[in-house]
């Protein structure tokens, strides 16, 4: 219940940011997008996903996220009402929810890979948005594009602090849940 309330709150926050997203890509991509994804992932955490659907579910989340990383999708979400609605539907239901639902089945190697990939992709986007010689979004000013690029870099740095640094100081984040998953995977392989 509390998760549903929190998801609703995150979704409402995302909706309340809508009047601001046309002016500021940082609010659009680094506040509204995460709020929508968070709303979906709060719903997906309790989802009991069959093991054989983990792969397709993860692919759905990654493909949807990849499409929303295209600069043209940002423009489309501002200029085309269909894309605007699609944003509010697909970011929670095709990115957040499937990612959270699949995550408990994902092994630690793939988890590490996905985290490293997320950081390197953010740094790549940061470089692209700060150094592109032209405007990537027709709807945003050059200065704002560069601010968004810096935002990607800051987010990447935050994730490095959160995910990577602890790895060098032993398994701080390793918890019982991960061990349970490892055990269940072994059982499946044995069957």
């Amino acid at each position: 219940m509390i998760r549903i309330v929190m998801a609703g709150t995150a979704f409402s926050v995302a909706c309340s940011l809508q009047p601001l997203v046309g002016q500021d890509p940082v609010i659009h991509v680094l506040a509204q997008f995460p709020a929508l994804i968070l709303a979906g992932s709060l719903l997906g955490g309790r989802f009991r996903l069959p093991q054989h659907l983990t792969g397709p579910t993860l692919v759905l989340a990654l493909v949807s996220l990849a499409i929303w990383m295209l600069p043209r999708s940002l423009d489309a979400a501002l200029l085309d009402p269909v894309w605007m609605v699609a944003k509010f539907v697909t970011l929670p239901l095709c990115v957040g929810l499937p990612l959270a639902a699949a995550w408990s089945h994902v092994g630690s190697v793939l988890r590490g890979f996905l985290k490293a990939q997320a950081i390197s992709m953010l740094l790549f986007l940061g470089f692209l948005y700060t150094h592109a010689p032209m405007r990537l979004c027709n709807s945003y000013l050059v200065d704002d594009q560069q601010r968004l690029g810096l935002g990607f870099v800051y987010l990447a740095c935050a994730l490095i602090l959160w995910w990577i640094i602890p790895v060098f100081f032993g398994q701080i984040s390793s918890n019982k849940k991960d061990d349970d998953n490892d055990v269940s995977r072994h059982r499946i392989e044995l069957r």
Binding site: L62, I67, L70, P71, R72, D75, A76, M134, S139
Partner: peptide
């Protein structure tokens, strides 16, 4: 997924609105 991304980028030719 690849088909969807192919579609969303006009066959890998356009990642920006321009």
């Amino acid at each position: 997924g690849c088909a969807a991304i192919w579609q969303a980028t006009d066959g890998g030719r356009a990642v920006t609105a321009e």
